Computed example of a mutant assay.
Amino acid sequence: MSGRSPTAQRLFWTLVLGGCASIRYGAVALAATASVCVAILVHRLDRPRRFRSLVRRIARRHAPTLALRRRQERFLDAYGNMIEDGWLRERDYFVERTVLPLIEERGYSDYAEPRFEEMVEIVERVAHAQVLPDERETPEDGIAYERYCADLLEEAGWDARPTGASGDQGCDVIAEKAGLRLIVQCKRYGRPVGNAAVQEVAAAALHWSGDMAAVVSNAGFTPAARKLAGTTGVLLLHHDDLLDLVPERRTGRRRAPATGR
């Protein structure tokens, strides 16, 4: 019996027990056994629908975040092509880390691999259907984009100022809040930002005695940039994230002596 599916096992034992009962109770037991077998089969046939419904419920609980990440990680490049690489990675990550553990917990572990793409499609539809506030129009010019990011930080309660175009040592905006200093490099790009920006802002944080360092972009980040950011403590942010940014001293970040500048 160990090689049979749960449904086959339920049917087998229902027939065995029902057959035994029918010896004593006759037609009534046979009718009851048939009804139970039909119910088991209907429940089995309805399993794919219940699986899809479960995945939708999981995705809808995170719909605002998914929709925001979808907007942040999709952008037009300089040639007018929609670049979705970042969103596709984010979508798969959500399915792997959030959806799969829950469906396995609910008894759908056999669906994890063969129905992975179906789960991804459900997440895509949920994210696409979620209504978000209109996106602010971001400046095209790099210097104006730095000012725009500083203004967003000001809205979030930071004391922020752009450093200017020259002599910034990889720092475009300096912001302070709750006694902590944030060093920001702003990238208004038509492609994902690479790890060079992470290296630059990490060095700038040391130069400017920063407690936090971040690269802010409209266009997402490469896997290499994300990997390096994870080891250096640099935040990788979409400009939308600045309105919710809170002061937090990053692990490993040390304030340099004031005389070192």
Score class of each variant (00 low, 15 high):
Arg4Ile: 14
Pro6Leu: 05
Gln9Ser: 09
Gln9Val: 15
Gly18Ile: 12
Cys20Met: 13
Cys20Ile: 15
Ala21Val: 12
Ile23Thr: 15
Val28Asn: 06
Val28Cys: 03
Ala29Asn: 08
Thr33Val: 12
Thr33Lys: 05
Ala34Gln: 08
Cys37Ser: 15
Leu41Asp: 05
His43Ser: 15
Asp46Gly: 07
Arg49Ala: 11
Val55Leu: 01
Arg60Ala: 05
Arg61Leu: 04
Thr65Arg: 15
Leu66Asn: 00
Arg69Ala: 10
Arg70Lys: 13
Glu73Gly: 01
Asn81Cys: 08
Met82Phe: 00
Trp87Gly: 01
Phe94Lys: 00
Thr98Lys: 03
Leu100Trp: 00
Glu104Asp: 09
Glu104Cys: 14
Arg106Ala: 14
Tyr108Lys: 01
Arg115Trp: 11
Glu117Arg: 03
Glu118Ile: 00
Met119Ser: 03
Val120Ile: 13
Val126Gly: 02
Leu132Gln: 08
Arg147Val: 15
Tyr148Thr: 09
Asp151Arg: 13
Asp168Lys: 02
Asp168Ser: 11
Ile174Met: 06
Ile174Ser: 04
Leu182Gly: 09
Ile183Gly: 03
Val184Pro: 04
Arg188Gly: 05
Tyr189Glu: 09
Pro192Val: 08
Val201His: 04
Ala203Cys: 12
Ala205Phe: 04
Trp208Asn: 12
Ser209Met: 11
Met212Ser: 07
Val215Trp: 06
Val216Tyr: 02
Ala219Asp: 02
Ala219Lys: 00
Gly220His: 01
Phe221Cys: 05
Lys227Glu: 12
Lys227Trp: 07
Thr231Ala: 15
His239Leu: 00
His239Ile: 07
Asp240Ser: 10
Leu242Lys: 04
Leu243Arg: 15
Leu243Thr: 15
Gly252Thr: 09
Ala258Ser: 09
Gly260Ala: 15
